[in-house]
Design a protein around this nucleic acid. Structure first.
Length: 508
RNA sequence: GGCCCAUUCGUCUAUUGGUUAGGACAUCAGAUUUUCAUUCUGAAAAGAGGGGUUCGAUUCCCCUAUGGGCUACCA
């Protein structure tokens, strides 16, 4: 069997989004599954849409995901250059070949003429297509004497080069995911191969590069399915062997219609990009998965399962196990709606799996952001107590602030629920108890407080709620006795004093 | 409009002619809990519609409907 070689070929017209990352991932998984190569090629033939920084972003995003190209710009390889803008000479010689063999022709129709033809057709409820039916009435080399063509070319008249589509020929295409697809060449148009600026279009450059780079499988988004016939025809025109094709289903908006876009993320508040991106023109910032606190393993796991499933009930897969199990046959045919909740769930799963030491170190970094510097052992105990309730590292902070900073206000709803006129006096007595408790540990505190409650015939909750309010500032958080042990006698007592002071003087 | 592709719980999906159509997320209920969360248990929830083929169709074929992609000198 031929060596497996696949490519991911984004154009640097902006940041990579979810769908792009998934295409890259599937290519990578497929390559590694069969001990093949994964190459990165930058398709920058459209100079107008070029966005500075986009290529660097793509590289960094792949790196974060753990998808490492075997060949590509800045990775090297024997089939470079890997930027299409640096391969102009290659395309030039190949288009000559097509011109010579009659598979392509020069066309001089201006964009304006074409536009009016399109409008005219539209008025009649039709669509103008530059195809075999009409090409002999248009301004191209098919209808001009060769001297005339040569003369125009010599004069430097703007022109494009089009593919001469076979007139009517049924085509059977094979897609690895969809099976057989039938089209007739009569429904195709004469695609532009070389633009008037001399640059090749996607179709030409793509086919030439895939062949020259020995690509065995073209795995790309479904939006390319309609272009498959023209690509196949190009391979034939060159006399080349065709690679296998696989068209991936699209990733759709969480609800409603259409494919997922960057704007959905802003609207529904979830990242669509792997990394944060600042638009160089507008300055607008789009958030990324990494910056939103996602682990790259969770992110990869989540997108891998959006359109592919190995068939069992397992949902958690490392990159290595994805490689072992990946196959194109198991890729779904229909588009998948993205789900923010499921994404968060994946992250939670990975967070829970991580060893305590790693989480502690991650959380220490989070603490630094809040200018908190605490002893490692203390931080570790906090993480241990809080980790269960977090989807993200930053949620551990949300749930544990009170371990590091005393409450500076008391949540109104909580006060209403916990505070009674006689509460202050109980808390006062409780302070004495705290002073009297010799061993200031959760267990001792629990025992002593239980006795305290019983002696006064109080309900447990009547005392615990204000206690919690004093320590946390609201009615959430870890076990109250654990919190006191962690804070220590002095800090715990101070917090009690403060609550009494604040609430006794107010109207509660 | 034309061409192509798709269609299983709300969502991601399993089941490639014979299943009580399975799992996960989300939802709801119960348990645990001093509170919030976690956790546990349970519930509700699906083969777009119509024709065939077959002893038997979610599974194969056709039609319709719906959804999606493409229809640029963008990729």
């Amino acid at each position: 069997m031929k060596k497996v070689k696949v490519r991911f070929a984004p154009s640097p017209t902006g940041p990579l989004h979810l769908g792009g990352v998934r295409t890259a991932l599937y290519n990578y998984l497929f390559a590694k599954r069969y001990q093949g190569d994964f190459i990165l090629r930058i398709e920058d033939t459209d100079q107008e849409r070029f966005v500075p920084g986009a290529e660097g972003y793509i590289l960094k995003a792949l790196q974060w995901c753990g998808i490492e190209p075997d060949e590509g710009p800045s990775y090297g390889g024997n089939y470079g250059p890997y930027r299409q803008s640096e391969r102009k000479e290659i395309y030039k010689s190949h288009i000559e070949q097509l011109l010579k063999t009659g598979h392509a022709y020069h066309a001089f129709d201006t964009p304006e003429v074409l536009e009016t033809l399109r409008e005219a057709a539209h008025l009649q409820g039709q669509v103008f297509t530059y195809n075999a039916r009409i090409r002999e009435q248009l301004d191209n080399a098919l209808n001009l004497h060769s001297e005339e063509v040569a003369e125009r070319l010599a004069r430097g008249l703007p022109h494009v080069i089009r593919f001469k589509t076979p007139i009517s020929q049924p085509l059977k295409l094979h897609d690895e995911i969809r099976g057989q697809i039938s089209v007739d060449t009569r429904t195709l148009d004469d695609k532009i191969l070389v633009k008037s600026d001399g640059m090749p279009t996607y179709h030409l450059a793509n086919v030439i590069d895939d062949h020259l780079m020995r690509i065995s499988h073209v795995i790309r988004g479904e939006e390319w399915l309609p272009a498959m016939p023209i690509h196949l025809l190009l391979y034939r025109a060159f006399g080349w062997e065709t690679p296998q094709f696989a068209h991936l289903p699209l990733i759709l908006k969480p609800e409603g219609k259409g494919k997922l876009s960057k704007r959905d993320g802003d609207r529904l508040d979830f990242p669509v990009l792997p990394l944060r991106w600042k638009d160089p023109h507008s300055g607008a910032i789009s958030q990324g998965y990494r910056d939103a606190g996602y682990f790259s393993e969770a992110f990869i796991n989540m997108i891998a399962l959006l359109g592919w499933n190995p068939g069992g009930e397992q949902e958690l897969f490392s990159l290595e196990s994805l490689i072992k199990k990946f196959s194109l046959e198991k890729v779904n045919k229909s588009g998948a709606h993205f789900s923010k909740e499921k994404a968060q769930w994946f992250n939670q799963q990975y967070l829970q799996q991580k060893p305590l030491e790693e989480l502690t170190s991650l959380f220490s970094q989070e603490l630094k952001k809040h200018k908190i510097y605490a002893e490692n052992h203390y931080v570790q105990r906090v993480v241990e107590a809080i980790r269960d309730r977090a989807h993200f590292i930053h949620e551990i902070w949300d749930q544990s602030i009170y371990f590091f900073i005393p409450p500076d206000s008391y949540e109104e709803k909580a006060v209403k629920k916990a505070w009674r006129p006689d509460t202050a006096s109980y808390l006062d007595q409780l302070k004495d108890l705290l002073q009297a408790t010799e061993n200031f540990t959760a267990n001792h505190l629990r025992e002593n407080i239980q006795v305290f409650v019983k002696a006064r015939q109080l309900s447990f909750g009547r005392l615990m709620q204000p206690l919690r309010l004093a320590l946390v500032g609201a009615l959430y958080g870890a076990d109250v006795f654990f919190i006191m042990e962690m804070l220590g006698r002095q800090e715990s007592t101070q917090r009690l004093t403060r609550l009494c002071k604040v609430l006794s003087t107010s109207k509660h």
